[in-house]
Nucleic acid binder design. Structure first.
Length: 493
RNA sequence: GGUCCGAUGGCCGAGUGGCUAGGCUCAGCUCUGCAAAAGCUGCUACAGCGGUUCGAAUCCGCUUCGGACCUCCA
């Protein structure tokens, strides 16, 4: 494809991407609720939109990427008097709610860094936008789509659906929803089970609460995303992303709120949903007890893991599947990713030392680069991109083996393409396996050259014992010796 | 119960009407003091049944199995 196409969840079509105000692009992604450590499934979603962000920038768009932090707890249960998650955690650990928020926000940021996921342009918090949320509720009430009961405000879905479509994104119909709504525990003040809260009254035991025209309380969960996306990206903007599990009710309610407050019929042009990471076919989730943290993954300290894996291995593993498909976690898949990534890294290294042919080249480096673009243009198809990169690997290794001829220009093009797609777009950075802190690179390199040289002498003398000992010891330190026709060389990893 | 989605070789995972996906694994070969790496070759699949078509993994129907959402969720 010669232009970027995106699968739009709203229309269920693959559509050509045309920003509202090129070269600017506005993108909003639902961030985490910071009441616990993020697990790997969460990471997958943020990785998905990291790729979108990176590729849009690669294409030259000026992207304003907004990803919120949900730091209001919301309710643990379905009842009107449920405790909020952050408040509950604060009580359990004897902390201020904001201490809980800060702790898990820090954790979230650390994890994002470890996986080389870029920071958004703006990272707004729900608590920082209480005023805007209250203003938004007033507008919705004024427009006739919300009502107040005992200090709480609810959105009237039925009233809204008389004037506007509701359920378009998730493909739900009001009548079906009616029949399938579960009976709530406790009585609800809602006039209709389909209604959702914009503002909840809080009693004195509730730790996080703010004054409002309706009394002390806190905002409903869906509202913050509507308000913050509108504030920073406008009443209509280009891309809204999030996990598949947020499609309903969260995103559906967001649309209703935006339309209800601002009257804009289609606030978001392209809706994108990342699919779930599964374990043994089931969604990774805290409640399932099958989730593990990035730290457990890296150390391998978890019953589901045979060993630890590096962050880049995990990143590569996730990118080997398309974001819109479920991806099943398994040790074998991780191991395959580990080896595949090592092969890729090794080829990049080989590429940098490759001697160009003096004659004609027989590899079309330009076509290779275009193929990489085509893969990403087709709805960010990272598995195809990776498969294409391996075609480049084959050419590089073929050149090293003397089977493929690459001109200096070909090599330069290959280097630029690997830099652009492997490093910049896929965000796969080289992981140093050397024991850091042991002097500078060139010094170590000179020593290794000397050792390899000594081993070559030993080999020439058929002193296999010495030669093998050098190889084994270096290997134990992560240095691999390669013997070729024209002598030996070393590499890390 | 309702809505939606999926089922691809030993494993993971693309593809969506005709053309090699790719990675990993396994076997053989080349290279090599041995090994590793690399290269070459092989194993070559589309849940089942029926239909549409010159032609289907790809479209339609049914069956079986699995999953997501309908409640907080990335």
């Amino acid at each position: 494809m010669d232009a970027l196409h995106i699968s739009n969840s709203l229309t269920r079509q693959k559509e050509k991407f045309e920003p509202i105000n090129p070269p600017f692009v506005g993108m909003y992604v639902c961030g985490p609720t910071v009441y616990s450590n993020v697990h790997l499934g969460n990471v997958r979603t943020f990785l998905t939109f990291d790729i979108v962000y990176r590729y849009l920038q690669h294409l030259g768009f000026k992207v304003r990427y907004v990803r919120n932090i949900t730091d209001v707890g919301h309710l643990t249960g379905d009842t009107d008097d449920g405790e909020d998650k952050i408040g509950k955690k604060a009580r359990l650990e004897n902390l201020e709610p904001m201490e809980v928020v800060q702790r898990y926000t820090n954790d979230f940021h650390d994890v994002m860094n470890v996986f080389n996921i870029l920071r958004p342009s703006i990272e707004p918090t729900a608590t920082g936008h209480i005023v805007e949320q209250i203003e938004s509720i007033k507008k919705i009430i004024d427009n006739g789509y919300a009502y107040e009961v005992n200090g709480s405000v609810y959105f009237s879905v039925r009233k809204f659906s008389d004037d506007h479509p509701y359920g378009e994104l998730s493909g739900r119909k009001i009548d079906e929803l009616m029949n399938n709504t579960r009976d709530l525990d406790g009585q609800s003040e809602k006039r209709d089970p389909l209604d959702f809260a914009l503002w909840k009254a809080a009693d004195s035991s509730h730790l996080m609460q703010w004054p409002s025209p309706w009394g002390m309380g806190f905002p409903g969960w869906h509202l913050e995303c509507s308000v913050m996306s509108t504030k920073y990206l406008g009443e209509t903007f280009d891309i809204h992303g999030g996990g598949m599990d947020l499609k309903f009710p969260h995103h559906e309610c967001e649309i209703a709120q935006n339309v209800g407050a601002n009257g804009v019929e289609r606030p978001v042009r392209y809706w994108m949903h990342g699919n779930m990471l599964t374990v043994n076919g089931r969604k990774m989730a805290k409640s399932e007890g099958n989730g593990f943290t990035p730290e457990e993954l890296i150390t391998g300290n978890h019953k589901l893991l045979d060993k630890g894996y590096t962050p880049m291995t995990v990143r590569f593993f996730m990118l080997m599947g398309h974001y819109a498909s479920t991806l099943d976690f398994s040790n074998e898949a991780l191991q395959a990713a580990e080896k595949g990534l090592a092969k890729l890294e090794k080829a990049v290294d080989t590429l940098n030392r490759l001697a160009p042919t003096s004659g004609e080249g027989n590899f079309d480096a330009n076509a290779f680069g275009e193929k990489c673009h085509a893969a990403m243009n087709d709805d960010f198809n990272t598995p195809i991109l990776i498969a294409t990169l391996f075609e480049g690997v084959k050419a590089i290794n073929g050149a090293a083996a003397g089977l493929v001829a690459l001109t200096a220009q070909d090599i330069a093009t290959l280097q630029a393409t690997f830099q652009a797609f492997m490093r910049d777009v896929l965000g796969l950075q080289a992981e140093s396996t050397s024991n850091a802190g042991g002097g500078d690179e060139s010094e170590t390199g000179a020593l290794l050259d000397l050792i390899v040289d000594m081993r070559t002498t030993a080999k020439a003398n058929k002193d296999w014992g010495t030669a093998d000992k050098i190889r084994d010891v270096l290997s134990a330190h992560g240095i691999t010796i390669q013997d070729g026709k024209d002598g030996s060389s070393w590499s890390r990893g």
